[in-house]
Amino acid sequence: MRAPRGLWRPVVIAVPFAVLGVVFLYPLALLAAEAFANPGGGYGLGTFAAILAGPAFHDALLATLRIALTATAVCLLLGSALALLVRFVAFRGARTLARMVDVYLAFPSFLVALSLTFLYGNSGFVRSLWLSTFGFAAAPAARSFLYGFWGVVLAEVTYYTPFVMRPLLAALEVIDRSQLEVASSLGERPWGVLRRVLIPELVPALIAGGSLCLLLTMNEFGIILVMGVKNVITLPMMIYGKAIDEFDYPAASAVAICNVALSLALYFAYRQALERMPQ
């Protein structure tokens, strides 16, 4: 459809924009208004500054960044290794695996947390196997690692590694194999070909996949909620707690505004990286 000419044209263009304005931009504006509202009426930085200065926010921000950065780093390493394996070792399985990766993306993240509870939880498969093999004398710590920092990282790595693999697989598919052959005929060993030819050419895909992964892990909520992690409070968990448990909407809004700002910055970086990807 070419938009109709004349008077109707702006109207036709405006309709979807207006709908999104009401259901998305207007709520965002009210969120900001809530965050910057003073308790006594009017607007100011009072509530906002108080929340941001508190140790709870500080801890949540730190926890969010630590989890997101760790999970992203592991996702990048694991995703690159698997993508390279798929491309150079099991080439025939590549298409099947690419499809499986797509399927994984349709999987809700919190289910990974639930599955891991059965696997590594306090009464999960691995602990039961350990106990029935070694007996109670060698019992591991009462609480599984799953309910802390590394549990969250494991769940996020499980869920988000495919997100990193997708751009990598796409980039690997367009890399000219004769480049690798020429590099090897010039005397470079496989490790050197990887380091000097492949990885430099994969940098845009690594940046794109990594920044998307960082964005999604920073915003991840379902995994931490369902896993029942009590001592790891990230920004989304803090927003949820303030709003649902404490009904403190202004505080929740203030944290949310920070979280949104952080995400938008990352999203911008991600779009920039995407534009630099070939094709």
Binding site: F17, Y26, L31, E34, I239, Y240, N259, V260, L266
Partner: peptide, 27 residues
């Protein structure tokens, strides 16, 4: 501009979107 508005929800944490809608449509 249209691009930005349409694509932004991808970037924003879902909890924050939920909170924003909750705040907005309680008034």
């Amino acid at each position: 501009g249209v691009d930005a508005v349409f694509l932004l929800p991808v970037a924003i944490p879902s909890v924050s979107i939920g909170l924003a809608l909750l705040v907005a449509f309680s008034h």
